[in-house]
Deep mutational scan, measured.
Amino acid sequence: SSQSQGISSSSTSTMPNSSQSSHSSSGTLSSLETVSTQELYSIPEDQEPEDQEPEEPTPAPWARLWALQDGFANLECVNDNYWFGRDKSCEYCFDEPLLKRTDKYRTYSKKHFRIFREVGPKNSYIAYIEDHSGNGTFVNTELVGKGKRRPLNNNSEIALSLSRNKVFVFFDLTVDDQSVYPKALRDEYIMSKTLGSGACGEVKLAFERKTCKKVAIKIISKRKFAIGSAREADPALNVETEIEILKKLNHPCIIKIKNFFDAEDYYIVLELMEGGELFDKVVGNKRLKEATCKLYFYQMLLAVQYLHENGIIHRDLKPENVLLSSQEEDCLIKITDFGHSKILGETSLMRTLCGTPTYLAPEVLVSVGTAGYNRAVDCWSLGVILFICLSGYPPFSEHRTQVSLKDQITSGKYNFIPEVWAEVSEKALDLVKKLLVVDPKARFTTEEALRHPWLQDEDMKRKFQDLLSEENESTALPQVLAQPSTSRKRPREGEAEGAETTKRPAVCAAVL
């Protein structure tokens, strides 16, 4: 046999249950609850290399294929790409003598399909299967379609040439079993990697079954959420508030809700932002270029202005709740996480202390139980975000031990490091100062900020419009641009040419 590394010779191994799959997660993409704000000051410096380099560890398999027929071997997927077919160049070659004697062998292509993985959001991997055969590759009886790919989820059954000719079961060793999710959700989405997690739940990458488009699904544990919100009269209202707010909003710089499922837990389906959180971008770069800050901040102002015009105060604006559309420097941003939002009543007064301390406005800290506050709290938070983006460190921090965090904020005395700000323009610093004003009545509004000289930049605004146009074009394009080929190089076993392929839609398939 010419099988590559990772293939075992026996096809009769006992199949494990899916609970053996491991679970991976990374930083929070968007969480309903406010958790302790991640610290920006503690960015690790590059460490000196050791005298002796450690040995390379043996790579762990990321997936496993269990053979369902004699003549096929099990495969431990270690590499990122595997070709399957009769050709000797394939990493998994159909060359077992037992297999060659079967009637089905002649229906398999020289290069029938490939399984591979690509880097997705949060640097996690996504597994795909890609059909290159004349007679078809099927996943859970659905045709992939020649020249098309679809994501592979845990426990997928792979069939060759005929939908009933099941050859492998695919085990993704990095994700959960699909069966743990409600059927209504599974009918519409293929669940994938964990993108982030918080005290009350997690955010998962998923794929729409009909279109193969990526989405983010925010899962909120009702049990954990009820415990964490025990002081509230009705904890469920917080989730329902977020859903109702998101459904009503329609702005290019605000995250869109696509679906909602109320089962044992809450499942909020949101558009996916491939670039992750602004927080991670700031930490990764230490600070952002001023031109990049301007492009992002302009969009934040437009989003918050839209919220305020619609009578909504976000109340928890922070870099973790600003998501980026891509890994590119120039990209769209979207505001997310409306769990603490407040729809303005007639009095415009709110007395609930919520939000993240580092970003809270002075009037929030001094008015607990005594007075109210209004939309100006969001403008203060925007000032803190702009400060961080321009400088790479927070204006107020618990680690300045000589003054408490509350006193720093209520006095408006931010930590100004001259040598850092020497590289920032006077106009940018002036806008920061106009937003970090203790008196909410004297603080800049979103309208005033948008009129500030720093943002009178036609090149930046043109760039934003171009990015918007690109997004609109990409969302308007159909996901499947061509029909699967019906040509046949070899006959199917026991049926006429093209008899099955043309009847089945290529579900969740995307043209390369």
Rank of each mutant, 00 (worst) to 15 (best):
E244N: 15
K248Q: 07
N250C: 07
N250L: 13
P252N: 14
P252W: 05
C253G: 09
I254E: 07
I255F: 04
I255C: 14
I257D: 14
K258D: 06
K258N: 08
F261L: 04
F261A: 10
D262W: 00
D262I: 11
A263H: 04
E264D: 11
D265Y: 14
D265S: 07
Y266A: 12
Y266Q: 13
Y266H: 15
Y266E: 13
Y267S: 05
I268W: 01
V269I: 11
V269A: 09
E271N: 14
E274R: 10
G275H: 08
L278F: 14
L278Q: 02
L278P: 03
F279S: 05
K281D: 04
K281E: 11
K281F: 10
K281S: 10
V282S: 02
V282T: 07
V283S: 10
N285Q: 09
K286Q: 13
R287Y: 13
L288I: 05
L288Y: 01
K289L: 11
K289I: 13
K289Y: 11
E290P: 13
L295H: 13
Y296S: 07
Q299G: 05
Q299N: 11
L301Q: 06
L302V: 08
A303Y: 01
A303R: 02
E309S: 07
N310H: 12
I313V: 07
H314Y: 06
R315I: 06
K318C: 00
P319K: 00
V322W: 04
S326I: 06
Q327K: 05
E329D: 08
E329K: 12
D330T: 08
C331S: 05
K334Y: 05
T336N: 13
T336K: 03
F338Y: 02
H340Q: 13
H340P: 04
K342S: 00
I343N: 15
E346M: 14
E346W: 04
E346G: 14
E346A: 13
M350N: 06
M350H: 00
M350Y: 01
L353I: 10
L353K: 15
C354K: 02
A361Y: 04
P362L: 01
V364F: 14
V366L: 10
S367T: 13
V368N: 09
T370F: 12
A371H: 12
G372A: 08
G372V: 11
R375Q: 04
V377Y: 01
D378H: 00
D378E: 09
D378T: 00
C379L: 08
C379G: 10
W380V: 10
L382A: 04
G383R: 01
G383P: 03
G383D: 02
V384R: 14
I385W: 02
L386T: 00
F396S: 03
H399Y: 08
T401I: 13
S404M: 13
Q408H: 11
Q408S: 12
I409F: 06
S411R: 08
P418L: 05
V420G: 09
E423V: 09
E426F: 12
A428F: 00
K434F: 00
L436R: 03
L436V: 08
K441Q: 15
K441E: 06
E447P: 11
A449M: 15
H452Q: 02
L455V: 12
E458A: 07
S469D: 09
S469P: 03
E470V: 13
E471V: 02
N472F: 13
S474N: 15
S474F: 11
S474L: 01
A476Y: 15
Q479G: 02
L481A: 09
L481K: 14
P484Y: 00
S485Y: 11
S487N: 13
R488D: 07
R488H: 11
E493Q: 11
G494Q: 14
G494S: 03
T502C: 03
R504F: 08
R504P: 02
P505A: 14
V507H: 09
V507S: 10
A509Y: 15
A509Q: 09
A510K: 03
